[in-house]
Design a binder for these strands. Sequence first.
DNA 1: TGTATGACCAGTC
DNA 2: CGACTGGCCATAC
Length: 109
Amino acid sequence: MTESHDFFQRVYDVVRRIPMGRVTTYGHIAAYLGARSSARMVGFAMNAVTHDARASDVPAHRVVNRFGALTGRMHFATPFLMRERLEAEGVTFVDEHVDLQRHLWEPAD
DNA sequence: TGTATGACCAGTC
DNA sequence: CGACTGGCCATAC
């Protein structure tokens, strides 16, 4: 249990709080954790979710980039799984990105 | 052990 | 305006 794992855990905690049918961005999570420019690590943490059974309850599909693009879709079992999950929750799309106007959720508790 | 890289973002040239 | 760079920091090789 290194302290570095703690950073990932914090990311997981925030992502787990995202309500059904809502999404948030890497930047918002990073900013909420006090490290605006660590958005990359947030994405990396999401990648880790795929390989970490303990984080299997983290809805990684609800995290998109600031434009609403599904940049992480290639990391799922199939490239279209991420979008399928979101649509199943009622998230709407505009072309290839999420309608953030409607679904953006900010980790402001 | 050191270097390269990434599911990003904002500022600068 | 578009293109480029820096920053962040854990992981992979």
